[in-house]
């Protein structure tokens, strides 16, 4: 697999981006030149160092409170990654459980579960997020729960379809006829067969969750005030987009490049597992 990645330039690029982001997130304290919360209000809104008004101590410039943009972007990777990683994980668990049960058992169980799924899908997700976060307060944990739940329900349908597909295979029926119980069949025989699809979907969902965090920040419902996140930096800098464009461009680029990296990696994974797999 690694050899394959190195051979493919696009895959190599995407993996390098992801490794960089993960390194940022894990070692933020050591990499970032300052604490992301250090304020220097006398030197606020500095442009990046290559601008004629730039200052060498703020490489990517400073924000409204004179905080170092580079440090905030490095630390911001943390929340973005946590939200997308754990949100996707939760989504996968919820989606797989509902999808597998629904697809495998069929009948009444399927009908009830799918109606519940339909309700959540028909409910404009952004409103659900707004209500829940308004009630429970903005926190990383709450965002993960809301995002994971809603995407999980979405995944349930896809996974159900895959399970139905696998179930029709003869070997499942054969296993059943030799007396294996349902749980065993689902876990040992059906899930491994849809694992490839799950991995591909998961990478794409991770990308979507990073975008979701920025949309919530735009509506003022992101994570707590002083925690730096890309989405919030971008949302806060949007009034500055004409006068101090750098403040909006860097977090915007961070989001775009990371999401691009994840997407490219997902695409590559899909080709790797099954070149003929059609995008859902």
């Amino acid at each position: 697999m690694i050899r394959q990645i190195v051979k493919n330039k696009v895959a190599l690029f995407s993996v390098l981006v992801l490794i960089l982001v993960v390194l940022f997130a894990v070692f933020a304290e050591f990499i970032a030149p300052y604490s992301p919360e250090d304020q220097h209000i006398e030197s606020k809104l500095l442009p990046p160092v290559w601008d004629e008004n730039g200052n060498s101590s703020f490489i990517l410039g400073s924000d409204e409170l004179g905080r170092d943009v580079l440090s905030r972007i490095i630390h911001g990777s943390r929340v973005s990654l946590i939200v997308s990683l754990f949100g996707t994980l939760l989504a996968l668990i919820i989606g797989t459980v509902i999808g597998a049960i629904s697809g495998y058992y069929g009948g009444k169980v399927d009908a009830i579960l799918m109606r519940l799924v339909d309700i959540v899908l028909a409910f404009p997700f952004i409103l659900l997020a707004i209500f829940v976060i308004a009630i429970t307060g903005p926190s990383v944990f709450n965002i993960i729960i809301v995002a994971g739940f809603a995407t999980g329900v979405n995944l349930a349908r896809v996974i159900r379809g895959e399970v139905l597909h696998v179930k029709e295979n003869d070997f499942i029926e054969a296993t059943h006829s030799i007396g294996a119980n349902n749980f065993r069949i689902i876990v040992l025989h059906i899930l491994p067969n849809i694992a490839n699809v799950l991995i591909v979907i998961a990478t794409l969902e991770m990308a979507n969750l990073i975008l979701l965090e920025s949309a919530l920040s735009f509506l003022g419902l992101g994570v707590p005030a002083e925690v730096p996140t890309w989405g919030k930096m971008l949302a806060e800098a949007r009034t500055l987009i004409i006068s101090n464009p750098w403040n909006a461009i860097f977090p915007g680029l961070a989001i775009t490049i990371t999401v691009l990296g994840i997407n490219l990696f997902g695409d590559w994974l899909r080709d790797y597992f099954d070149p003929k797999y059609v995008e859902k």
Binding site: Q39, P224, E226
Partner: peptide, 21 residues
């Protein structure tokens, strides 16, 4: 408000800014 919180922390009081709907 973030600047005020920073100044309050300067004298040694732990304070965290929270945004509420």
């Amino acid at each position: 408000v973030e600047a005020v919180a920073d100044m309050i922390r300067e004298i040694g009081v732990n304070v965290e800014v929270v945004q509420k709907e």
